[in-house]
Design a protein around this nucleic acid. Structure first.
Length: 428
RNA sequence: GGAGAGAUGGCCGAGUCGGCUGAAGGCGCUCGCCUGCUAAGCGAGUGUAGGGUGUAAAGCUCUACCGAGGGUUCGAAUCCCUCUCUCUCCGCCA
């Protein structure tokens, strides 16, 4: 959520921002609502003041045993007026807030202006595409061939976009989670948390999933509970409504959670394999930082996420998203795209963003600086570190051998009872 | 699921028959004084948000907030209703 005062004072900038984001949102209604809201506020507050003064007067008169009936009558009328203005005010305020909640964040100056993913800017690459002396297979063929990924039964148990892992695949998934958490906690200094996997509407609004992206979420019938689409939601909201001490910043949290997404609007896209599932595992990195540090923290967070792929020895590239391709809440986003030889393409495996104070204003996360009386909003950041399912995909495709087996990266072997190669399993 | 107790400022904790209580008292914290050092002592200050005024900061001023929402009343932390959360006991359960 943007600050109204900022919108009011920077109309041209905000309009340009909306154009750059390919949005045709008209800001006029917002200004109108803001004006109405403030004039009602001035009116009702003045009336409340009068009432407060009169109430004291009544109390005084009564103490002195004098007649206050006239004043009481007058105040009855005033009370009715106040009530009706308050009612209108709350309607206007609600509408006003809804509008504000639907305006996307302003991209940082360093973000390239562009239409779609074709205008994203490649920042760097790491490693090289592996060379095969055979035709590399896509992961679904490898997984089914080894008997460790069972798409048919996943669909039978739940439906499309659900997969059953067997044996080495589930062990590998578990190993990846442990490995990632260990790297981030022991080497990068993050604190591990395990949050609720369902959250309420207020948390979803805090990080920006609601109200605009309701259709992408799974909601529990009869409850104000939503399945988390990413750990970003519960973890960023850990400090919602709190005022932190400056000495506590930056806060660096890492969390493993499953993620649930409806994938509405992507019918027919990535239907094969593990790329686009309704449920997948992810290790997330979340930071709360001082505004002046947040862009340095973003670079560090990005590097922390890249470390995982470097340790695994898998080729990737880092891409800076352009204005037209960025997420709604983000001010700047880097995607890490991993190389998938079986599909001859790069796929997003992590998205690292600085939201500046956009989420903090919604979730009301502030901090107090020594020597300053005003509280300030923190900056929030997050990134995948990494998407576990897609990492498993990358391992299968990058380390596959001609006989259909897959070599396990060195760093994961201690987590898998020193298994070196995934052989054909016992799916039955 | 059944029975009961509670929710007040950073923390503890008072709020009488509704009125000058944004909230006593204590602790903590900040600044100053005092003191070989430390401890103790003394003095002052110490919530958040929004609006108006101000070029801005400061300041001044108003409004709201005692779990949340609604009601009664000229006026509610205080009375009434609904909800949420916490705690205790019983039952059930991984």
């Amino acid at each position: 959520m943007l600050d109204v005062k900022f919108v009011r004072d920077n109309m041209e900038l905000v309009r340009r921002m909306l154009t750059n984001r390919q949005s045709d949102l008209d800001l006029e209604p917002l200004l109108k609502l803001d004006e109405t809201r403030r004039s009602l506020l001035v009116d009702v507050e003045e009336k409340k003041h009068r009432r407060n003064v009169a109430s004291e007067e009544i109390s005084r008169l009564k103490k002195e045993k004098q007649d206050a009936a006239g004043l009481v009558e007058e105040m009855k009328d005033l009370g009715r007026e106040i009530k009706s203005i308050d009612l209108r005010l709350s309607e206007v305020e609600h509408e006003f807030r809804e509008f504000l909640l639907n305006i996307p964040n302003v991209p940082h100056d360093s973000v390239p202006v562009g239409r779609d993913e074709k205008d994203n800017r490649e920042i760097r690459t790491w490693g090289e595409k592996p060379v095969f002396d055979f035709e590399p297979a896509p992961h679904w063929e490898i997984g089914e061939g080894l008997g460790i990924l069972d798409f048919e039964r996943g669909a039978k148990i739940a439906g499309a976009r659900f997969t059953l892992y067997w044996g080495a695949a589930s062990a590998l998934e578990r190993a990846l989670i442990c490995f990632m958490l260990d790297v981030h906690t022991k080497r990068h200094g993050y604190t591990e948390v395990m949050p609720p996997f369902m959250v309420n509407s207020s948390s979803m609004t805090g990080t920006g999933q609601l109200p605009k992206f309701k259709d992408d979420l799974f909601k529990l019938e009869g409850w104000d509970y939503w399945l988390v689409p990413t750990a970003e939601v519960p973890v960023t909201n850990i400090h919602s409504g709190e005022i932190l001490d400056e000495s506590m910043l930056p806060r660096c949290y890492t969390a493993y959670t499953p993620c649930f997404r409806s994938e509405a609007g992507s019918h027919g896209k990535d239907t094969r394999g593990l790329i686009r599932q309704h449920q997948f595992n992810k290790v997330e990195l979340v930071k709360l930082a001082r505004p002046e540090d947040s862009y340095d923290e973003l670079e560090k967070l990005l590097d922390n996420a890249e470390t995982i792929l470097r340790e695994l020895g898998i080729h990737y590239r880092v891409v800076l998203l352009c204005t037209g391709d960025m997420g709604f809440s983000s001010a700047k986003t880097y995607d890490i795209e991993v190389w998938l030889p079986g599909q001859n393409t790069y796929r997003e495996i992590s998205s690292c963003s600085n939201f500046e104070d956009f989420q903090a204003r919604r979730a009301n996360i502030r901090f107090r600086q020594k020597g300053r009386s005003r509280t300030q909003l923190v900056h929030t950041l997050n990134g995948s570190g990494l998407a576990v399912g897609r990492t498993l995909v990358a391992i299968l495709e990058n380390f596959q051998q001609e006989d259909g087996t897959v070599v396990i990266p060195e760093v994961l072997r201690p987590y898998m009872g020193n298994m070196k190669v995934i052989q054909r399993g016992v799916m039955s």
